[in-house]
């Protein structure tokens, strides 16, 4: 399927391995990515904290650009983008007058957002559009014996109403399902739905790193081999900052953290190097050491 693809800023900046691995994984899942490289930052809630109309206009512009493509829907690979964009879209869709005011801000460029865009995180698209059966059929290297802790982050699970998390679409269970579909084992630990701490890293570093350190520690205590995240900002706090977080919580850590497309790429037969896993701060040895955790049995054709 063809999608208007919003990668966000950080996947092209400080976590290039996320953008890179998505590009590698997409063709294997028959996803054609039309990159929205003209769109501006979603604001991550921070621009809205300064000026709501500004954040809404910037995102309406991205939505309008997405609607100009021939993609079936818009897809993002960042929970924070999903959360911030869903919040703006909620306002734009709820009120015609307001939407017209925002569209007036875009008129100089000849752009206009039409109510009712579908914008899905890669995780949602994977389960709802591609389907777990299709995904399973494509697995060539099941993640047998790999114990994976899902770390959803906040923006993709709350608030449930805005994100349309319902009984029919329990989007807050999808990462569990995907891990199982890839042949891995889901590790339940205290941090599954907690906050990585990233939003306050510049305001209260201790509290921020305590959050990150505790979640990693809890996952280690539950004997996870790695964490998987659908958000590059969570990745920054859980991986890039993990050595500092270890100091703050006063224990040894060292748990690899994978981006969602990386985990899928591994199971679909891509090499760790292709997936940019050499770029991680915590070396994902336990994940890529095929002789131990991942027994790379080739799936029956």
């Amino acid at each position: 399927m063809k999608v208007a693809y919003w990668p966000g800023c950080v996947s092209r900046g400080f976590t290039p391995e996320l953008h890179g691995s998505m590009a590698k994984v997409a063709p294997l899942l028959d996803i054609e990515l039309i990159e929205l490289d003209r769109g501006a930052c979603c604001g991550a809630g921070v621009i809205a904290e300064h000026n709501q109309e500004l954040a809404d206009t910037l995102n309406a512009r991205t939505f309008a650009l997405a609607q100009q493509t021939d993609g079936e829907l818009m897809m993002n690979i960042c929970s924070t983008c999903q959360g911030a964009q869903s919040e703006c879209q909620e306002r734009l869709d709820a009120n015609t007058d307001y939407r017209n005011q925002i569209n007036a801000n875009l008129a100089d460029e000849g752009l206009s957002y039409e109510r009712g865009l579908t914008n899905k995180n890669f995780l949602w698209l994977l389960v709802e559009e591609i389907g777990l059966d299709t995904l399973k059929a494509k697995v060539t290297r099941p993640l047998t014996d790999l114990r994976v802790g899902p770390f959803y982050g906040c923006y993709i699970v709350r608030p449930v109403e805005r994100l349309h998390i319902t009984e029919e679409h329990p989007r807050d269970r999808y990462m569990h399902w995907v891990i199982e579909a890839l042949g891995g084992t889901v590790v339940d630990y205290a941090g599954v739905y907690k906050c990585c701490g990233f939003p306050i890293i510049t305001m209260n570093k201790d509290a921020s790193l305590t959050q990150a350190g505790r979640h990693v520690g809890d996952a280690l205590d539950a004997e996870a081999d790695c964490l998987v995240v659908p958000c590059p900002l969570c990745h920054l706090n859980l991986d890039l900052q993990q050595p500092l977080a270890a100091k703050v919580v006063g224990r040894e850590l060292g748990l690899p953290v994978l981006h969602l497309p990386q985990l899928i790429g591994l199971a679909l037969g891509l090499s760790p190097k292709e997936l940019g896993m050499s770029k991680h701060v915590v070396r994902p040895t336990s994940v890529i050491d095929w002789s131990t955790s991942v027994v790379a049995g080739t799936a029956a054709a």
């Binding site: 809630g45 906050c195 939003p199 306050i200």
Partner: peptide, 9 residues
Amino acid sequence: IYDCTHCFN
């Protein structure tokens, strides 16, 4: 106010 992590809980 700047100690809130924006977690929606």
